[in-house]
Amino acid sequence: MAKAFIPSVLAANDLVEGDSVYLGTDTWVREIARAAVATTPAEAEALAARGVAAERANLVVGAYAVEVNLAGGTPWPIARREQIKASRATTIPVGPAALLDVAA
């Protein structure tokens, strides 16, 4: 039996700003909630292809797929690393990088 497809979004870093960004419907966005979600392998491939094109166009660097959970209504990453990235939790000056038991 084929493994169930896990929905994903496409993450990267903005070449000039360096910020982590997600591929939205039209443009790259800062908030994962506004990211375009792939719910089928074909949609994931389409996102990846847009990522490759954006890298070639020197817009972003290092595009990769991030598996997400859609239970909360908007995409939220499954992996801890991606949760931290999506939450931008260390953006507090001299941040106590807050314990991230994210309930999102």
Binding site: R80, I84, A89, T90, G95, P96, A97, L99, L100
Partner: peptide, 17 residues
Amino acid sequence: GLDYCALATARSIPVAQ
């Protein structure tokens, strides 16, 4: 650690805190 570093596999700053 994982709060900043692309290579990290776990958090270290919150553990230290």
